[in-house]
């Protein structure tokens, strides 16, 4: 079995008004994992635990084969981290930051850094405080990408970016994962971004992992089935039923384990299937979170 790039086992972290509970996740080399969850789900805390910035109360955290936070200094040589609230020195230029980072990391790829300066349309001699938000994010990413880390940990890196800047950033991240030895853990509210670049998805809500799956297989399991239910007919129970919404004769059934047998059961019960829709990750995300909240409230 391949050694994971990182693994979290039974990790817990308690704050006054929030706690991460029994968090277990792992990522294999060459994979991109999207960490999706609403505000306050614990995404940033999870990433900061991985980076050794926050210490777990219990549980085992291993990154690149080493225990965290004990091996934080060694691990961070091969891990790049960017978060949306990370800032550079406003009074200093991008070139100054590039010199600083290249001095610290012997893996710094100067030629690639120059390519990124051009591709991101940045100016080496521009002070950071005079850059737009998008330029600052791209500058921060440049400083991380040019180190060529084995694991990229990105906390909402596309937040606040315009569509063009987002496209540039995501394109560069996709280029990174063409190298199969490198991996990305990517947290985002933007499910489109996650759907586009991630081959694994982990859903987090209120400090718990509520789903951790292969993206394609996961998306493929979900369907919203619209039914025309005549009076007196009973809708058969679908496997993985998440939600049922009725509006007169029309019933929308959301399922996380769709099987064609459900359509046959409906036909047998005299119910017409109007259509079977695939769902976007955003729709799935909302349905999953709401379903789990209802389950926990019940």
């Amino acid at each position: 079995m391949t050694e994971p790039v990182f693994s979290l086992s039974g990790v817990a972290k308690r704050y006054r008004y929030f706690q991460l509970t029994d968090l277990s996740l792992r990522l294999d080399p060459g994979q991109v994992m999207g960490l999706v969850g609403p505000n306050g789900a614990g995404k940033s805390t999870t990433l900061r635990i991985l980076m050794g910035m926050v210490q777990q109360d219990r549980g085992d955290v291993r990154v690149l084969g080493q225990s965290m936070p004990a091996a934080e200094a060694a691990v961070k040589r091969d891990v790049g981290y960017v978060s949306d609230d990370m800032r550079l020195y406003g009074s200093q230029t991008l070139a100054w930051h590039m010199r600083l980072v290249s001095g610290v990391h012997d893996t710094w790829d100067a030629a690639y850094a120059e390519q990124l300066v051009g591709r991101f349309l940045l100016h080496r001699d521009q002070p950071i405080r005079l850059m737009s938000h998008g330029e600052r994010v791209k500058a921060t990413l440049l400083l991380v990408l040019a180190r060529r880390p084995r694991l990229l940990v990105l906390d909402e890196p596309t937040t606040g970016l315009d569509p063009v800047a987002r496209h540039e950033v995501l394109t560069e991240l996709m280029a990174v994962v063409r190298d199969e030895t490198r991996s990305i853990l990517f947290s985002s509210h933007n499910t489109q971004d996650v759907e586009r670049i991630c081959d694994r998805i982990a859903f987090l809500d209120r400090g718990r992992v509520i789903e951790d799956s292969d993206t394609a297989a996961y998306l493929d399991r979900w369907r919203r089935v619209h039914l025309d239910v005549p009076p007196g007919a009973t809708v058969p129970r679908a496997d993985g039923l998440i939600d049922t919404v009725q509006d007169g004769r029309l019933v929308a059934v959301t399922t996380s384990a769709y099987a064609p047998a459900f359509e046959a059961s409906c036909a047998h019960a005299g119910i017409a299937v109007r259509d079977v829709q695939r769902m976007t990750l955003e729709e799935i995300f909302v349905a999953t979170v709401m379903h789990h909240r209802q389950e926990r409230a019940a």
Partner: peptide, 8 residues
């Protein structure tokens, strides 16, 4: 946050 990504 940026500085603490250094290997220290």
């Amino acid at each position: 946050l940026f500085l603490f990504t250094f290997p220290v």
